[in-house]
Design a protein around this nucleic acid. Structure first.
Length: 625
RNA sequence: GGUUCCGUAGCUCAGUUGGAUAGAGCAACAGCCUUCUAAGCUGUGGGUCGGGCGUUCGAGUCGCCCCGGAAUCACCA
């Protein structure tokens, strides 16, 4: 072990990467393991005792103290039967003697801070810088087949900010899990049937005068959404009139002619009546065209899209079959129910008395269809926390129906996006439209860039591409940096920032490094990894190496926690650290060639890690900005 | 009322399995471009981590009880 640490054999360093150990959710990289083992040895030698792994807590030393790794001494006191200070000193002395990489130590209160040699950090850095695949360390031993369901739009209105959060989370999750070696498939369930769809169909029939997205120049989903709004407006007017005539509010809602017609239309649709089905197909196709465009702008896509209009039938079969098997029961009115009281839940209706399916019916069918298609270990449903109960029921229900794999159905529950004055409501028109927001972000990116006087000498096409990357980078980062399961507030009045903890800040750091490399090329300077070890790093550079070392660990933790936010915050931290370095030190102007080479490679790895991290978030990096 | 989630600086948010003096950004103020991109860097001010009790050598983090907010408890989706 001691010898291994001194070894400069590249094979060892390769081995280092294979030695990222994840035990019980904990992450350890070899250096920590080496120290840990040596401390066990110390406890055995000094105190004649065996220390359990959990008692030996190694962490990175906080910046305000001298050292690289820190042992929390308190848990060891039970063996040493001595003061924290003395115990720390004893173990520190033992480690310094046994581990050449440990060049010194200090004890502050109950913390033993170990100093690691620069040489060791450089060895580590050389190996990482030479590694082509930054995710190789992240790969799990047992890859799973995982489906990520996200987006799940209704086909009666365009996407809004809430959907954006959903899409970004789902897509990022896909990339994070894939990077860890899982076989991940992106799926979508489209809510393309039901009374809400009939509403916009009916309104178009009555008030549309045959206009189309083409004839009006509108995006398809907005076009259809317009008729959904029309329906709600006219319906409301009818209700008001009925109430004026003395009808009760509830009765008015129920008996308004428009609502009755919508219901009739649903029945005709379910009966497969050609005229209705054709209209449904046409209007849905308009919506899909619109969605396609929004998805394309957001940079998300799907491996397989499921449609509720198909899976609800499978769901109904499952329900009927379970009824025959007496797993379910029916009421006198022919509605079908599940009794989940034994599981701590309630009774749940699975089919209406008129024989039509409810929301959860299609989820049963969709899950089974997906399992037939993919034999997945897990399906991760990216769905808002307002549906927590629904997914609790879904899993319990599927277990009850005998699907053992239902344990793999995971609700990735994320928080709502709220406006300063509360929740977004489609019907009240208080949503932030996805297309509008994306367009505004690109415009803001243009304004900011122009004001800063950047990008002169670029073609309009190149500029548009850069503004797109920056605008979307700002938007995506703004949303993904927040812990997914928390609600977040979006203030439309204050535009999304481009300074500080933002996407553009990280993109800017990347672009700066790109600029350094271009300059290096002009100067004829080539980075040379084989010359790395002749450089003597400073403290800031070691700090950067330490931060870079945390990247694969962060990815693994983000995968385990389903949290793109952890990646986002890591990228920010790295950018901030790098910008300090960039400000304080000259790279190409450094006269010591070994140091110049080292700084260039350090910058190169930083840009690669930033780029990889942002890629996990679905954020593109501009080469210049 | 039951269940679940949230509460950290004026605002928006970080804070790894409990560890040292709770951190960023925005906003405010004061500095730094003849040198690799100033979308940057440095500094100042700003906190009863909603409140209390408990567990522990140690609690923003774990447990219990309150307070405040959100969601949900439909033959809606």
């Amino acid at each position: 072990m001691v010898l291994i640490l001194l070894s400069r054999d590249l094979c060892f360093i390769r081995q280092y990467f294979k030695n990222v150990i994840f035990a019980g959710g904990k992450t350890e990289i070899l250096m920590e393991s080496v120290i840990k083992n040596c401390i066990k040895e110390a406890v055995k030698t000094l105190y004649n005792n065996d220390a359990e792994d959990e008692l030996i807590q190694i962490q990175e030393t906080r910046k305000d103290f001298r050292g690289d790794f820190t042992l929390v001494v308190f848990p060891i006191l039970r063996f040493s039967k001595n003061t924290p200070e003395q115990t720390g000193k004893d173990i520190g002395a033992y480690l310094s003697e046994k581990l050449p990489a440990v060049t010194g130590f200090n004890v502050v209160k109950g913390f033993l801070n170990l100093e690691i040699s620069d040489r060791w950090w450089m060895e580590y850095f050389r190996a990482t810088a030479g590694e082509e695949d930054l995710f190789s360390v992240c790969r799990v031993d047992n890859p799973e087949t995982i489906l990520v369901e996200y987006s799940s739009p209704n086909t009666n209105k365009p996407l809004h900010l809430g959907h954006i959060r959903n899409n970004l989370l789902g897509y990022s999750l896909f990339r994070i899990l894939s990077s860890c070696g899982h076989n991940v498939y992106k799926t979508n369930i489209v809510n393309d049937r039901g009374i809400h769809i009939c509403k916009s169909m009916l309104a178009w029939q009555k008030y549309g005068n045959g206009e189309t997205p083409e004839s009006t120049g509108m995006k398809g989903d907005h076009f259809v959404g317009k008729y959904y709004v029309t329906f709600e407006r006219e319906y409301k007017a009818q209700i008001e009139e009925l109430v004026l005539q003395g009808t009760g509010e509830a009765e008015a809602r129920n008996s308004a002619p428009l609502m009755q017609e919508a219901r009739e239309m649903l029945v005709r649709w379910e009966a497969g009546e050609k005229e209705v089905v054709d209209l449904w197909r046409t209007m849905n196709s308009w919506v899909y065209e619109g969605f396609e465009e929004t998805y394309r702008m957001l940079g998300v896509d799907f491996d397989k899209i499921y449609y509720e209009s198909e899976t609800y039938k499978t769901g109904k079969e499952i329900v009927l079959s379970a009824l025959r098997d007496k797993i379910l029961y029916s009421h006198n009115d022919n509605s079908i129910w599940a009794d989940l009281t034994a599981e701590g839940l309630d009774h749940k209706v699975l089919q209406r008395s008129d024989g039509t399916a409810v929301y959860i019916t299609q989820d049963l069918g969709t899950a089974v269809a997906r399992h037939n298609d993919y034999r997945f270990e897990k399906t991760i449903y990216v769905v808002g926390n307002e549906q927590n109960y629904h997914f609790q029921v879904l899993r319990v229900l599927m277990k009850k129906l005998g699907y053992k794999w239902a344990d793999g159905l995971i609700h990735f529950s994320y928080g709502m996006v709220e406006l300063p004055d509360g929740k977004m409501k489609s019907r009240e028109g208080t949503t932030v439209d996805a297309d509008d927001l994306i367009r505004e972000m690109k415009e803001t990116a243009r304004d900011v860039s122009m004001e800063l006087g950047k990008l002169s000498g670029f073609s309009e096409e190149e500029k548009a591409d850069i503004f797109r990357k920056i605008g979307l980078g700002a938007l995506k980062y703004y949303i993904l940096k927040v812990d997914p399961h928390k609600n977040m507030t979006f203030n439309p009045g204050e535009s999304i920032d481009f300074n500080g903890n933002t996407g553009p800040f990280i993109q800017y750091t990347y672009a700066r490094i790109g600029s350094v490399y271009r300059k290096a090329g002009e100067m004829g300077i080539e980075p040379d990894i084989s010359q790395l070890m002749s450089a003597r790093p400073g403290q800031k550079e070691i700090d950067l190496i330490k931060l870079l070392r945390r990247f694969p660990v962060t990815v693994r933790e983000a995968a385990a926690a389903y949290s793109p936010a952890m990646i986002a915050n890591y990228c920010y931290e790295l950018s901030k650290e790098y910008n300090q370095f960039y400000h304080d030190f000259s790279i190409l102007g450094e006269e010591n060639k070994a140091l110049r080479n080292f700084r260039l490679i350090l910058s190169g790895l930083t840009s690669r890690v930033l780029s990889a991290g942002m890629w996990l978030l679905g954020i593109e990096m501009p080469e210049r900005m």
